[in-house]
């Protein structure tokens, strides 16, 4: 049986206290919420900690409630299952509920949390393996090694951001409330990530994701489409989060953020610029999807080859755009074809 390494367990009374506990020894202390990412990684010795600080029980991290200016606030400790089934989210921000409901498998969604999924470690199939395997292959840059094994010439780590909810939260212009030892601060979710497989989070290690605030202006449309090999369990091969404001047929604003195409969620800026102000029709959707897929550069370190994953980005973006808002039917020639 694969077992956890030894650690001490601490149960703070508040998020601030939790942050203070981590800040005491940030190198050796990790926050524990649902444990679905952390505990397997401890078992495989991908992460090491002398102390785990549990935030799962904290009441201030619980609940989904109305926030200021019509926003919805989701507690960092809310489980993915609870978020996926929440009536408010399903009604006002369906893309977010969908994303939460697409993470991993049913039992893991019962444990995994909103805060945890925003902070989920980047993935690489040279890194997400047991200690003996990683030792045998010679350890990678992300953990204990000196060289990136997927791009040996590279000085950086290319592990893949694989959160389903993060791209959606960014597309919805969400803000996280982070609690440190001295109080709270707010950070747009878009600013929570760095394009680096190792140092992928911009938050300080001790900061607790207390809640996620998602603006929900009337009429906002959203959708998330995830591609994976199986109907469950798997991380995204490609994911597309779309948030859309339409005024009749006119696109007031469009935000498209991609999952699993880089070390952070990737915003499809060119596609967004193209879509804004245009008419919501078939041609616009196709071109938007084409532009969105442009910057995606998958590597051979996740499920499926780079050849296939690269081609699939456009498909998932197109599907997400269609899911966000029905596209008026027009006849467009030559939409089929693999490439």
């Amino acid at each position: 049986m694969l077992r956890l390494p030894r650690f001490s367990y601490r149960r703070p009374a508040s998020a601030r206290e939790a942050a203070a506990m981590v800040a005491e020894d940030p190198e050796q202390t990790l926050l524990l919420a649902g444990g679905t990412d952390l505990l397997p990684k401890l078992k495989r010795r991908q992460l090491a900690a002398r102390v785990l600080v549990d935030v799962r029980h904290l009441a201030e991290l619980a609940g989904i409630r109305p926030g200021p200016a019509g926003a919805v606030e989701v507690g960092g400790g809310v489980t993915l299952a609870a978020a996926a089934g929440d009536r408010t989210l399903v009604g006002a921000l369906p893309g977010y509920a969908t994303a939460a409901g697409q993470v991993s498998s049913p039992p893991l969604r019962e444990a995994g949390t909103i805060g945890g999924n925003l902070c989920v470690d980047t993935r690489c199939n040279y890194y997400d393996m047991g200690e003996e395997w990683r030792r045998a292959i010679g350890y990678c840059l992300k953990k204990d090694g000196v060289q990136c094994l997927v791009a040996p010439g590279s000085s950086r780590c290319w592990a893949v951001s694989s959160s389903d909810t993060a791209p959606m939260a960014i597309a919805l212009q969400g803000v996280v409330v982070l609690v440190g030892p001295d109080g709270e601060r707010e950070l747009p979710v878009a600013d929570l990530y760095r394009d680096d497989g190792i140092d992928y989070l911009a938050k300080r290690p001790h900061e607790v994701v207390a809640r996620l605030r998602l603006p929900a202006p009337p009429g906002r449309r959203s959708a998330y489409v995830k591609l994976r090999r199986r109907g469950s369990i798997d991380f995204p091969i490609a994911g597309a989060a779309v948030a859309l404001d339409l005024d009749g047929p006119a696109i007031v604003s469009a935000r498209i953020v991609l999952s699993a195409v880089g070390s952070s969620p990737v915003e499809a800026v060119a596609a967004e610029a193209f879509l804004t102000g245009r008419r919501w029709d078939e041609e616009t959707v196709l071109e938007g999807a084409r532009l969105a897929a442009g910057p995606a550069k998958p590597l051979d370190n996740a499920d499926g080859s780079h050849f296939w994953r690269k081609r699939m980005v456009r498909v998932v973006v197109e599907q997400a755009l269609r899911a966000a808002a029905p596209v008026p039917a027009v006849s467009v020639a030559g939409t089929a074809g693999a490439t």
């Binding site: 549990d54 029980h57 498998s105």
Partner: peptide, 29 residues
Amino acid sequence: HGCELGECGACTVLVDGRPQLSCLALPVQ
């Protein structure tokens, strides 16, 4: 138990009636 990593579901138990993977739960929790 089939993997102890949350990948197979063999260790599922109910906690307050909800399925939880016992390989990824600490008793203290």
